[in-house]
Write a protein that binds this DNA or RNA. Structure first.
Lengths: 137, 137
DNA sequence: TTATCTATTTATAACAG
DNA sequence: TCTGTTATAAATAGATA
């Protein structure tokens, strides 16, 4: 698309490389905008130049975070590292504790006790009697 | 770049839109590959078509996760840190529930009841008596 | 460096099978 | 709804300012 054809390999002349980078970066962002509008799609584009400076585009109808959520849903790949997973594990564990307590509470109120055996019922009865004694004191 | 010039607005004819999407998606991915090589840059591109199907490109020298880490560093915007915050909030909330249940359980066992007033004690006594009745049945 | 200018190359809209 | 073709629009390499 220029005065001459170029091979697709690293441009060694650094000022040419910089100029080409700037032009093509604008070009690709323009393309991203266009496909977003023309085809009703969502695009996220992040570019880091070799200098480390960042440029981005994200379709107006969405956010990068939303895109990444969908990305994870689509691919099954995890982006939010181990840390995230640990938190999820913690939540699961606490929820389990929660459920257990819920059950104990119900048992103490005399609910859902058909599944309990004789010994368990006796323990429960004693606990309740102790509780009553303490409260009546 | 075609037989005719088009306006940049949503293509209403859905099969045209689909064809254009497919072509331009390939085009933009090609451009992303080219700028990666030519200019020694890192590019991440994620596209969701209106059907919800995803396509992506990421420069071979990096990964999406690394890109996103750099993104957060560059912009100061939080991507998954925000997610972590949400999870932490959830954990706090469940822990609070947990504590409340813990307290109720202790009360039913007749523990830590000095802080309760007369009415609360009466309610507790009744609950225990009901429980006993149910269990003895 | 950053912008503008064009000869060319490249991408693609419309069309065809 | 795919794949291929082609006339044309758009992008851009190299030059110039």
């Amino acid at each position: 698309m220029g005065r001459g054809k170029i091979e697709i390999k690293r441009i060694e002349n650094s000022s040419n490389r910089q100029v080409t980078y700037s032009k093509r970066r604008n070009g690709i962002i323009k393309k991203a905008k266009e496909i977003t509008v023309l085809c009703d799609t969502k695009v996220s584009l992040v570019v880091f130049g070799s200098s480390g400076k960042m440029h981005e585009f994200c379709s107006p109808s969405t956010t990068l975070i939303e895109m990444l959520d969908n990305y994870q849903r689509s691919t099954g790949k995890k982006l939010w590292d181990a840390k995230h997973e640990n938190l999820n594990n913690e939540i699961d564990q606490i929820k389990k504790e929660n459920d257990n307590m819920q059950i104990k509470l119900r048992h103490l109120k005399g609910q859902d006790i058909t599944s309990l055996n004789h010994k368990e019922l006796m323990v429960l009865e004693e606990a309740l009697e102790n509780g009553l004694v303490n409260i009546r004191d």
